[in-house]
Design a protein around this nucleic acid. Structure first.
Length: 130
DNA sequence: CCCTGATTCGC
DNA sequence: GCGAATCAGG
């Protein structure tokens, strides 16, 4: 289908007269989709049928970002000082809970106590391992 | 189910 | 750029 100036002019005329796309299409010998498509392409405004389209059904959109899940409770617990505070029999017994040293179950404060190299006699294991 | 226009998508 | 296909409201 070729849109000559005459056709376009006629289209605009009929469109301006208030004819529907179907009618214009019939008179021009084209389908209504061609008319509405051309009208939209020409920037003509359709006064009737204020149908507003909700969304774009056939448009898969890649998620812009992928938020990484927050640290799980167990992960947080893994980095929590597990130095016991109080008597286990007491109701208010609890663990230290402060941020633990990486790879260790205790925070710096309690790790110092836990791993204190008590003046052992022979070479300590830490020194050998290190 | 018919009509309408609007938008998208393949050619 | 074109228009059928699709969508969406009347």
């Amino acid at each position: 289908m070729v849109w000559n100036d005459e056709r376009i002019e006629l289209l605009k005329s009929l469109w301006a007269e208030g004819l529907t796309t179907g009618e214009i299409g019939k008179q021009l010998g084209v389908s209504k989709n061609a008319v509405v498509g051309k009208a939209h392409r020409l920037g003509l405004k359709g006064r009737p049928s204020p149908i507003k389209r909700t969304k774009k059904p056939a448009k898969p959109e890649a998620p812009p970002k992928q938020v990484e899940p927050p640290p799980s409770l167990v992960d947080l617990a893994a980095h929590t000082c597990r130095w016991p505070i109080g008597d286990p029999r007491d109701a208010d017994f609890h663990f230290c809970g402060k941020p633990a040293l990486t790879g260790k179950p205790y925070c710096g404060e309690h790790a110092a106590i836990a791993y204190v190299t008590s003046g052992s006699k022979s070479s300590s294991r830490e020194e050998d391992a290190a």
